[in-house]
């Protein structure tokens, strides 16, 4: 007899809600069962199934860093049935969480290297986890560059943190918005992420590039990185296929020989190139 129902979620309490952008919120979640909270561990890049009983489950990465103990955060945009229901919750409410699932960014292997983070839109959350993870262990890495773009200024998430990162002498931050998405007082770049990346031309020497964004952004970013001299093995991304179970059973996120949920979501560009274009 197997011991535990794999699909049973932890019951989490929403400690804090931050409105990041229109329709985008961040929840800070704590375990209602202290024991469960103490035993809970995860690594950068992993995700979970966040749920409301009666509405369903939705898949997002854990957006907080594993170096920050005692809570997890998730950031989501209100879009479907579950995220709409989540968006109606208030601080103090409870919700479900199962995880952590999936593989992780091999951050331990990146010691002594420079890191280049490239994110677009609502894909900054999966990257925020690993950015904070790296910044909390800042001495382990050389240069840290973050390039982040969104459709409009309003759509940029984690605005306060972007401000903080921008002020840090040990971080080079480039923010950009799509043409037409700027405001009169916008100080950042104007242009699509791949274009801004090409202009910034960060060095590929001893550098790992981490790319998260919508499929179209990823498609146009890879060639630019290749041009800058990044090898496919040194470019990491997360795939965002639709998932249900999160543990390699339901078949939904199957791409080629991988289940994105179990064998990913973190893949190198070398792996992605070998995959059928079904992500």
């Amino acid at each position: 007899m197997s011991a535990e129902n794999l699909y049973k979620p932890y019951v989490m309490k929403i400690e804090k809600i931050t409105q990041e952008a229109p329709e985008v919120k961040t929840f800070k979640l704590v375990f209602t069962d202290e024991e469960e909270g103490k035993n809970f561990n995860f690594k950068a890049g992993q995700f979970g199934e966040y749920s409301i009983l009666g509405e369903g489950e939705s898949t997002f990465c854990i957006a907080s860093s594993p170096t920050r103990k005692g809570y997890i955060e998730c950031t989501f945009r209100r879009a479907g049935r579950v995220t709409s229901a989540l968006a109606r919750l208030e601080e103090g409410d409870t919700m479900g969480f199962r995880g952590p699932y999936g593989n992780t960014f091999p951050i331990d292997d990146w010691k002594g290297k420079s890191l280049l983070f490239i994110a677009g839109g609502i894909a900054l959350p999966p990257m925020r986890c690993v950015i904070w993870n790296a910044l909390d262990l800042r001495e382990n890495f050389k240069d840290v560059t973050i390039i982040y773009g969104a459709r409009t200024v309003n759509d940029l998430v984690y605005k306060h943190e972007l401000e903080d990162w921008g002020k840090r002498p040990d971080v080079k931050l480039i923010t950009t918005v799509d043409p037409g998405g700027e405001t009169p007082d916008w100080k950042g770049e104007i242009g699509f992420v791949p274009t801004v990346l090409e202009k910034a031309a960060p060095s590929s020497a001893n550098t790992i590039a981490i790319v998260c964004g919508p499929p179209i952004m990823i498609k146009f970013t890879f060639p630019v990185l290749t041009k800058l001299g990044f090898t496919p093995e040194n470019i990491f991304t997360t795939l965002e296929n639709r998932m249900k179970c999160g543990i390699g059973k339901c078949g939904r996120c199957n791409v080629g020989k991988y289940f994105v949920c179990k064998d990913g979501p973190v893949f190198t560009f070398a792996q992605v190139k070998e995959l059928p274009p079904e992500y």
Binding site: L53, K244, C250, G251
Partner: peptide
């Protein structure tokens, strides 16, 4: 074939999370 979907249902104060056959 083993692919499945997960669906929640709630009627009044109680409900279930259900596993249902699905197809690629």
């Amino acid at each position: 074939c083993s692919c499945f979907d997960i669906q929640d249902e709630r009627y009044g104060g109680k409900g279930q999370r259900l596993r249902c056959w699905d197809s690629c």
